[in-house]
């Protein structure tokens, strides 16, 4: 294998061997060298360890992303590809084609219209009423504004009445659970520790998920 000339051949060959880039007699020769040379074996071990470490460190970061973030991303992907499909299905109307055709002229045209509008306003302002004239629409005093609904707690009617419960429970304590043993029934699952609540996700068969993306 040909390398740039700033690395020694044996180190380059060993690296290529490790990366599975050597073939045939070259690979066999390097395998024999590795078998005979403890230092080469140690070097291979170091490269293997490094590969494992890099993989695991990134997996560790990936595991920290809440499932909900990926769900949000899926929703965006789903929306985008739905729009793609719609744009393919629905040919552009006459006006859409005209709109596209004048694309290069839109900005200067709008600028001209806006400039004309400003000019009209400035010219008409000479006939403006005296400044102490009452405005046509008085602002509503702040105290008279309707109270905004509580943004945090919806007072509205729940579609399903709240069931009664015999005993009142204290508010849940923010805590993660510790899983001692787990067995998923066929399909895989996932555990998410948030520091406030531990969430375990399980999935039923595909058939029961049919309505999943009607969300």
């Amino acid at each position: 294998m040909k390398y740039d000339n700033d690395i020694p051949t044996q180190a380059g060959d060993l690296q290529a061997f490790f990366d599975g880039e050597l073939e045939g007699p070259d690979a066999e020769r390097m395998a024999r060298s590795v078998e005979a040379d403890a230092e080469l074996r140690a070097h291979l071990g170091q490269m293997t360890l490094m590969r494992d470490l890099v993989g695991r460190s990134m997996e560790m970061r990936a595991a920290e992303v809440p499932r909900a973030r990926f769900e949000q991303i899926w929703d965006e992907i789903d929306r985008t590809i739905s729009e793609d499909a719609r744009s393919v299905e629905a040919p552009a109307s006459f006006w859409q084609r005209v709109w596209s055709a004048i694309r290069p002229f839109r900005v200067p045209a709008f600028a001209a219209v806006a400039a004309a509008a400003v000019a009209v306003v400035v010219l008409r302002s000479g006939d403006a009423p005296p400044v102490n004239q009452e405005p046509e629409v008085a602002s509503v005093p702040r105290s008279a504004e309707p109270a905004p609904p509580d943004a945090k707690v919806a007072p509205g009617p729940a579609s399903i009445p709240a069931p009664a419960i015999a005993e009142s429970f204290p508010s849940p304590r923010a805590a993660d659970a510790e899983i001692h043993g787990i067995e998923f029934g066929g399909k895989q699952g996932r555990i998410s520790h948030t520091g406030v609540v531990t969430v375990l996700y399980v999935e039923e068969d595909a058939a029961t998920q049919k309505s999943e993306r009607s969300l």
Partner: peptide, 29 residues
């Protein structure tokens, strides 16, 4: 069949949640 069977420990009154997949009623999915 069993979807999941697990043993866990948690602080008294801590909340543990299991997401059990898709579900719809008359009003929501």
């Amino acid at each position: 069949k069993s979807l999941v069977s697990l043993e866990y420990s948690i602080e008294n009154d801590g909340l543990f949640m299991i997401g059990a997949g898709s579900y719809s009623n008359e009003a929501h999915s």
